[in-house]
Amino acid sequence: MDEPISPGDRPAMGRSPGISEPAPPAAPSAPVRAPSLRRWLASPLALAPLILLGLVVAVLAIASEGQYFGLSFWGPVWEFIPTDPAGSTYGIALFALGTAITAGIALILASGLSLAIAIALTTYLPPRTGRILTTLTDLLAGIPSVVYGIWGFVVLAPYFASTVEPNLRNALGWLPGFGGPESAIGGGTGLLLGIFILTLMVIPLTTAVMRESLRSVPRDVVEAGLALGATPWEVVRRVRLRVARRGLWGAVFLGFGRAIGESVALAMVLGNTIQYPPSIYGGSYTIASFIFTQLDSAFFYPELLRALVEFALVILLITIAFNLLGQRAVSGVRTRTVPGAGGRA
């Protein structure tokens, strides 16, 4: 069962598909020789993914018309309804800040938790227990974003406002970003809730990649460590993590690609406020959640639409960059429980 991990891997619930189980991808057997005409016709089909990818980039690049790239694009102000279309500036800065805060912190939390889970699954838990727990954590990946969103907005937000945030403010108020006046805490939606939800959404991917990276460490290397009188933890820290380092970083890159692209759930729980967030309790927007919520109002303002398309292009390019990095890093790692991850990069 050997599938390299790739950015879009969505662990489905379960120890899954054994799409993988079958033998290591058969030793590259000589491709079937097709008649040359058919071969020639075939290459567009083989390249369908590449063509689709190029099409998406091209359409967005054309739609943006490139005219807003430049200083004003990075200006700090977003004019909601441009009063002077020709001279309006559409700044990405505040949204980029929102993306950086939510994706950055969520990724740090998710990486830590995923690493702990991956170590527990590969070193400490008995295989059967591990399989059941893996099925359950992979379940998180199958849950639609909007469902995370409505749960966050309706169930968690009031709880965050009444309990989590006041307590956090009392306990960590001295930390910059965690204090502020009592009025800093609003209805519960905001950065804190957004980070929490995003963390949960990123975890299945980072866990799957980290788990398989650790699992791909050859057994005899691990045993060599044990045979030298190292405790299981010492083997993890000094051998396993070191050997699997590339794959673990790959998980972080792929996780970042996933985190910055999330739009729907964050649009529901982030408080949708264009502002420099005064604290972790304040509302914000990410680039993705902003373009998700604004497209309908842009219908009447072509300039606005172009700016939004450029935002889309920005996150697309960043995502591609991080996924390429991640793919490179995990190219040696093979995952078994991540279905759909067929390609051998």
């Binding site: 050859p218 005899d220 290397v221 045993e223 060599a224 460590g225 045979a227 030298l228 009188g229 000094r238 051998v239 070191r242 050997v243």
Partner: peptide
């Protein structure tokens, strides 16, 4: 009781 395995497995150190 130390042990050496069939395949040489130096750590990446």
């Amino acid at each position: 009781i130390g042990m050496v395995f069939q395949r040489p497995v130096p750590f990446p150190l």
